[in-house]
Design a protein around this nucleic acid. Structure first.
Lengths: 145, 145
DNA sequence: TATTGTTATACTCTATAACTATA
DNA sequence: TATAGTTATAGAGTATAACAATA
């Protein structure tokens, strides 16, 4: 448990916040599928790892309110990227599952995303990129805490 | 210049993108001043380092279109956080400068932001936090490329 | 009575297009 | 003719509040 009252740590926190906000604004524009928002992409990514989930679970994981997730899931279903099934035990809930089409799309899109980020990462040297690569899983953990 | 055709690098890029998007969504809600958007805060941060700039320069730095910056600058001025002066050499341009009030506000807010991020960072161990601290400046560089 | 999900509605932020003033 | 900034307008994404169905 880091001591955030320390000056350097506070500075790092501010630096991190600023960089994350700026980067996210740029990434928003680089969409795999032009018609899919970052959160919609993120939901597909989550489903790719956890298999399937209820709308409520997805809303909590993506830090979005339930009505927003309703809208997102409906849009993804209309595009054939997820399938909605009744919950086996609780008839209030639904189960959202990714379709084969979503798997193919996510896979196919990886190349394009890399292409854009490559243009940014090429501005880094090997050491900087190594630092960032090491930090990626930590950032993911932080985002999920 | 890293080789992004390599599988691990591509995976790191995806991990990075996902984490940055998720984190940014959460940070959006943790505002110093409830009435200031992330971009507005970011503009103040930029002015804190570069002193003053024209609206056009700010729009480019924040990766926002000029009309959006017009709105942001107008809002910041109405709150007494920036001052608008005529450009000394080009009467089409304006010079945006931070006020003393903005300096105080940014300073005062640092504690609060740290308080929130601390709750997340406390979920990391020392090594993870060290990794993230090292990556912060690289992320900033990447965001500015 | 509490919880899951939905519908209706409004708000915030940003973008594009068209305009004004200056270079 | 080109550039800096603005105004007007539209669109995307999200939130809150009120509601329906089920537990």
């Amino acid at each position: 448990m880091p001591d955030l009252t320390h000056g350097d740590d506070a500075a790092a926190v501010n630096s991190l916040r600023s960089a994350v906000m700026r980067l996210s604004r740029r990434l928003k524009h680089q969409r795999v599928d032009e018609s899919l928002s970052p959160t919609e992409m993120s939901v597909l990514g989550t489903l790719a790892t956890c298999g399937s989930a209820t709308p409520g679970e997805l809303a909590r994981k993506e830090h979005v309110q339930p009505p927003s997730m309703t809208r997102i899931v409906a849009l993804l279903e209309s595009k054939g990227l997820v399938r909605l099934e009744p919950h086996p035990e609780d008839r209030r809930q639904k189960v959202v599952t990714q379709t084969e089409q979503a798997v193919v799309m996510l896979d196919e899109s990886r190349r394009r995303r890399s292409a854009f980020l490559a243009t940014l990462v090429e501005g880094l040297d090997e050491d900087e990129w190594a630092t960032l690569r090491a930090a990626a899983p930590v950032l993911e953990k932080l985002a999920h805490l």
